[in-house]
Each structure stands twice: as structure tokens, then as C-alpha cells.
Design a protein around this nucleic acid. Structure first.
Lengths: 333, 333
DNA sequence: ATGAAAGCGCTAACAG
DNA sequence: CTGTTAGCGCTTTCAT
């Protein structure tokens, strides 16, 4: 491996000059730059990451704390991760992957100068990891809004607004017998932030319109969807409007609707809360509120970079939910 | 952040002594060790990762090259990743996440001393990334067996044997009208290694038993499964044995079988090739050949560590497929 | 516009 | 069993 000294020698300049053409932190004559760049190319020189981080106190890597358990929505997680990794590369950063069930991992990564900032996903309303995160004194970004952000940056969909939006849209279409099929009991039991906020928005909006707020969790599977719809129809046989926030159960819900002789888009209006490609990938293209997971991952990185570069204050970014009408909703009567 | 010198001073020893109690590379008196460890704890000392890697030429991190596209089986990918990350932690290694669509990424990580070894997933039969990988002169492990391993370590399920095993098992149960519902056309079109080997094993074994080797790809969705089964029944209306290697299409296939009046386990024997929890999580617990994804991720790390420590030669580890009988298969006649 | 040189924090000879 | 010290390869003052 060539070092910076090798390059300097080959180009007939000093080490610092090489360093500066690389960083652009001081002006370099065209001729010198040309020679240095040629030497770099010719020697295949790459700065040694460790040496760089030692001298500059920047690691150029981001830690991503991801839930790799099976009970979360794997597809959505993957989209977050995709957004984070690709946007990190735009900033010339790399991504270190930490898992949630390695609680010391976060501390280790931060205090051993492995990373410049941390991004944490799957945040619970009262997440026990947040105090630890705050103590680390490193830039940190949450994907998911906790009750108390403790001065950390946050990006999330405004799930409460999403719950309201879904109800309002169904009400405007003339529906008054509504239900919500939501995340798994486990997710709810963990007080996962997004789930609680969605439900809150949904319930409040329903109550404001004098509607009975029926909510059923569903296991994250086809069968889970079938069973949840069964329970919903038991409680509310005259159902005409349905909100579903559970990717894995979605196909089951739709199949069960059809099986019950009440196909989506004909006798029941269905609004899904999920990534757009999931909504369009069902048998029937679904009216949906988009969960822009890739975009959220990207924003998380941007927020982290702003904190690293020290210019910006911590920031809470709640994305406005957007509803796209497709074929699963209709005007009643 | 406390440095090693701070610890040394606090414990009244030299820097090297601190370093050696940490690495265990030379013997330390009980008393000294106690004092050093106390100082470390008290100061909350963590070695600076960059300084360490600069001095020791070891980064204690592994690069994981993962496909983050949507068209791969997200669930299985996640299991590989889980296995890799958790096993890496057992070796006190961290994991740097690279994506496949960042082709320079691999080279960058390797040549800038970011990582000690690389693990690459989703290998194609004639994968264009392999020559590049070989040139890097760094330990590398493939999850997936290419045609030419070029001296790299490999872990994979023996998919060819899995194809044979499935056919043999069905034949032993008295089935002679068999079909295979496989991965998506895209995956097949990319000449993904595992897909081709599974098909080869399946076809050869079928031919040896004088059976017509019917193979249908399926899109990775419920509908994809329904449609694929439709095509299979068109070609082979008297089907009694079915092998399915497509997690996402599995529920659709099962539903369509029931809809066609030929429920799995009653008139058609179904063998799934998938992680065990997927097989047991269907309506009917499926007889399956396990895809031990977490385990494969773990083995990949072990192979990488063996190469890093320089003791072992590159190694190809093909896992023997194991079939578990559950309720979707039965003896014919 | 460029160079010299002092670290950054750690490891691993070498010396005892 | 422990200490001294020379780097590892880079960034960044301080000089010029």
C-alpha cells in the first residue's frame, strides 16, 4: 500500500501538499495539483482510514443501529437502511451496522472513535436507549419520534396526522363505519412510537366525527390479516371503511374481504399505510398513505451530517403524510 | 476521552503495560492487572479505533457486501446479515455495510484499510465482482457458490443436493408427477448461483427417475404464487408433488392449491425450500428443506476470521440439505 | 503557494 | 514481569 509520503516523493512535493490537494483546504497551483493527482493515480494511493481518523478526529463513518429481529417489518427496515447507506455515500461516509440487542455496541462505537454520529431506528415512545445516547455526547439521529427527544435530531412520518388523514378521507367519501387494522400485538406492546401515534390520530379523529373507533392488531402474516379482518367484521358487520397499517397482513386482509363477499374498492374502501410500491403491488392498486422509508433514511443522514459539521442545531423533522387515491376507495351511496 | 497514557499514569505503569493487559499478549502480575483494570474502569477508557488500526494493521471490522435491492428475498437477506453481525461481535469485530450498487465501495474499503476482510452475498454463477475481489489481496468470503471460486472461501447450502433430495423424497412417497416452482425470472436471468444449482439437481434427479422435470419461475408475491401454480396445473393437471423455492410466493401457491380443490398435504405433497420458521409459519406446517441463513452468516464470519488470522487455507463449505417432514407431504396411494 | 515538523493514540520490538 | 521508544500514516499549525 502506497502512503502519502510515497505520493509526495513521486510528485516532488511535501506530504502536506498532498494532503491539501486531497482535502482542498488550501489553494494549490494547477501544475502541482496535476503532478500530485498523477502520482496518486499511478500509485493507486488511498489514505489509510485509521491514520486519517487519528489525525483529524473524524472517522467518516456513521453507526446505524438497526433491529434485526424477525418480528419487525423487514421490508421497511431494508428501505430505511438503503436510504441511509446510499445517502451516506453521497457524503463520502461509510456505515457501521450495529444491532439493537448489543446494547453496549452503541456506547462502544461512540466512545472508541469508531463513528462520527449514530442513527437509531425503531424507536419506542419511552425508549430506554435514549438517555444512554444523550450521554454519549455524539451527534445522534432517531428514525422515529419518542415522547421526549432530549435534544436529539429526529425524522419520522407524522403518524398522528396520518391517522387523522385516513379517517378524514374516508369520512369525506361518505363512510361512517370504520376500522383500523394495525401492527402486531408485540409492536403495540412495546409501545413503539409510530404505532401509538397512528392510533391516537385515528381515534381522536374518529371521535371528533362521532364514529366508533374500532382498532384491531394483526399478526404480521397472511393468516394474521385474515383473522384480524374476521374479528373486525364480528365487531362491526356493516363495515365500509378500513385502514390497514401492516404490510405483511395486507394480502390476507384483502383476500379475506373478497372471501367475505366484500371486495376492497367495491363495498369496502381500504386505505393502506405503507411504502408506495407495496400499495401498487397488490392485486388491486391500493389507495395509500405513503411511508417514504428510503427518503426517511436519507433525511436521517442529512440530519446527522448537519450535526457533525456542527452548523445546525438538533432538528425534528416530521414528514407530512400524503394520500394517493388508487382503486381501493370509492364514494359511498 | 481518556487515552492510554491517562490510564498508565493513573495506574502508575507504562503505556505498554496497559496495552498488554488489554491484549493479553504478555503476562502481567495480578496486582498490576488489578490496578490497570481499575484505572480503565474509573476513567471509562476505550482504545481509539483509528490509533489501534494504524499501529496494529488490524481494523477489527468486516465489510459485508449486501444486496439492498427490493427484488431479492428481503427476509432471507436479513437472516444472513443477522448471522454475520452477531457472530462478528463474538469475535469482537464490527461490520461495515456496503451495498452492491457501489462497485468502488469494495475496493475502497479494502485498500483504505477500513476492514480486515470482506463478506459478499448474493453471488452469481459467473459473478463479475469476483476477479476484483481476488485482486484486492484481502481475505474474502462468498455467501453463495460461484462457478469458479478463484481461491476464495465460500459457504453455501448444497442446492444441487437439495434439488435431488426433494425429488427423491417425493419419489419415495410414491409421487411421479412433480413440478418445481422456483425463484423469480429476474433472479434466474441473473444466473444467480443457488437458483441454477437447485434446478440442476432437481432436473437431473427427475430425469434419473424418468420423470418430466417441470419448472416454473414465480414472481415474489402472493399473486406470483397463484399464477405460477396456475401455469403448473395447465402443464401438468395430474400433479401430485410440488417443490417450492420462493418464500414470497409460498402463501399464494398454497392458497391457489386449496382454491383448485387440491390442498397441500391431501392431494398434493409440497416441499418448501426456505428457513424453518417460514415453513412452520404457514397455515399448514410445511415439510421443508431448511435454508439455514443465520447459520450461514455465522459460518461466513468464521471463515473470514480463519483467513484473517492466517492459519487456515481458503475453504469451501457446502452445507448438507436436511429435510424435515411436517404436514404438507403424504404417501401416495 | 509550499514545506517542515509536531503530534494524534496505540502497538510491539527491544532492553532489562 | 515491566518500561522505553520507534514508528504506524495522516492532518494541521507555524514558517516562509
Amino acid at each position: 500500500m502506497a502512503t502519502i509520503s510515497d505520493v509526495a516523493r513521486a510528485a516532488g512535493v511535501s506530504n502536506s501538499t498532498v494532503s491539501y490537494v486531497l482535502s482542498g483546504k488550501r489553494s494549490i497551483s494547477a501544475e502541482t495539483r496535476r503532478r500530485v493527482e498523477a502520482a496518486i493515480r499511478q500509485l493507486g494511493y488511498r489514505p489509510h482510514a485509521g491514520a486519517r481518523s487519528l489525525a483529524s478526529r473524524r472517522t467518516w463513518t456513521l453507526a446505524l443501529v438497526a433491529p434485526l429481529r424477525a418480528d419487525v417489518n423487514v421490508g421497511v427496515i431494508m428501505k430505511f437502511v438503503t436510504g441511509v447507506v446510499t445517502r451516506a455515500r453521497d457524503h463520502e461516509m461509510d456505515v457501521l451496522l450495529l444491532t439493537q440487542d448489543d446494547p453496549q455496541g452503541v456506547e462502544r462505537a461512540a466512545t472508541s472513535s469508531l463513528v462520527d454520529a449514530l442513527i437509531m431506528m425503531d424507536i419506542e415512545a419511552d425508549d430506554p436507549r435514549i438517555p444512554t445516547l444523550v450521554e454519549l455526547q455524539r451527534p445522534a439521529v432517531l428514525i422515529g419520534l419518542p415522547e421526549d427527544t432530549r435534544g436529539l435530531s429526529v425524522v419520522d412520518l407524522d403518524f398522528e396526522a396520518a391517522g387523522r388523514l385516513a379517517v378524514q378521507h374516508l369520512v369525506e367519501l361518505g363512510h361512517r363505519r370504520l376500522a383500523l387494522i394495525g401492527p402486531t400485538p408485540t409492536v403495540l406492546g412495546r409501545h413503539t412510537s409510530y404505532a401509538e401515534r397512528l392510533l391516537r390520530g385515528y381515534r381522536r379523529s374518529a371521535e371528533e366525527s362521532d364514529l366508533e373507533p374500532v382498532v384491531e392488531p394483526a399478526e404480521a402474516s397472511h393468516v394474521g390479516g385474515v383473522e384480524a379482518l374476521g374479528r373486525v367484521l364480528d365487531r362491526m358487520p356493516d363495515l365500509t371503511g378500513l385502514v390497514v397499517h401492516n404490510e405483511a397482513a395486507l394480502p390476507g386482509v384483502l383476500a379475506a374481504l373478497t372471501a367475505a363477499g366484500r371486495p376492497a374498492g367495491r363495498t369496502v374502501s381500504v386505505i393502506a399505510l405503507c411504502p408506495a410500491d407495496v400499495a401498487t403491488g397488490q392485486q388491486l392498486p391500493l389507495t395509500s398513505i405513503d411511508l417514504p422509508a428510503v427518503r426517511m433514511g436519507e433525511i436521517a443522514v442529512d440530519l446527522a451530517m448537519a450535526r457533525i459539521e456542527g452548523v445546525e442545531d438538533p432538528e425534528i423533522r416530521l414528514l407530512m403524510p400524503r394520500l394517493t387515491e388508487r382503486e381501493s376507495t370509492f364514494r359511498l351511496g
